[in-house]
Design a protein around this nucleic acid. Structure first.
Lengths: 138, 138
DNA sequence: AACCTTTTGCAACTATGTTGCAAAACAATT
DNA sequence: AATTGTTTTGCAACATAGTTGCAAAAGGTT
């Protein structure tokens, strides 16, 4: 069952505002990762750029969305699953970027394998980005 | 044995210029990944920003350096090993970002593991980014 | 409704990246 | 080493991305 946008905000101790609800709904409707620019163009009503930046930052801080590094230097944001909480992301799944449609997916079911990194290095987080063609574009 | 900067350029069919040599030497001296901004500040003599952008792009195209996606949305560039050639990068190693000193390393010896991505998805390239603490900062 | 707090929008700014064009540097040839 | 043609570089101007301070608006609480 899906948590409503309002509940997500409540659970994070954030006040419920129009803009935050709108941005959360964009994520839920599209069920894919969105960039700042995506949100700007998807929101028909005028959203101030600054508001979007600040809202996304708040969501990241609260564990509502996580960021995805991409090769072309544009940060993507995607909704976190339940496991994430304030200041603590658990998005250890693989991110897939389709070269055809440009969609970034979270592949929740593909786990990150163990890496044997060299002695002396301490591993905190592993990010896996995969490029290829998604099932819709095949 | 290390290939000289001049040879690297020759092998790629590029003309030998002061700027290109200087930028290559920065990579060789530092033996870590550099951002555009790093190069700008490391080169004591004035380098035009545009020249740096274009030189890096040329190097990427020719397989001399490869780009590393990072979580904070700044592209890093690192020297390729011999295996890379024009239009064909073989940098399938793990990239490690130290949270203390900010250094990005290419862990040449850590191979990218196989992933079993869902049916319908075709995999072209896998990027693995690891955060943690490097052996110098431990 | 009245109050206080948080969020939003605006303006101005910094940083990052791109393009066109003329001057300079490079490469090849005599 | 001078001439010529090609490539590279620097400049100017522009475009996009992201940040900060502050006043107005909206949210939360009583």
């Amino acid at each position: 069952m899906k948590t409503s946008s309002t509940e997500i905000l409540k659970n994070s101790g954030l006040s419920i505002t129009d803009k935050r609800l709108k941005i959360l709904e964009l994520f839920q409707k599209n069920s894919k990762a969105l960039s700042h620019a995506d949100i700007e163009s998807l929101s028909e009503k005028h959203f101030d750029r600054v508001t979007i930046y600040r809202t996304l930052q708040t969501f990241v801080d609260k564990g509502i969305v996580h960021t995805i590094p991409t090769a072309d230097n544009s940060i993507m944001y995607a909704l976190c699953k339940e496991a994430c909480s304030e200041g603590h992301h658990h998005d250890n799944h693989v991110h897939f970027l389709c070269e055809e449609c440009g969609t970034t997916y979270c592949l929740e079911n593909v786990n990150i394998p163990e890496l044997n990194i060299p002695k002396g290095f301490t591993l905190h987080q592993t990010n896996v980005l995969v490029n290829g063609v998604c099932k819709n574009c095949k």
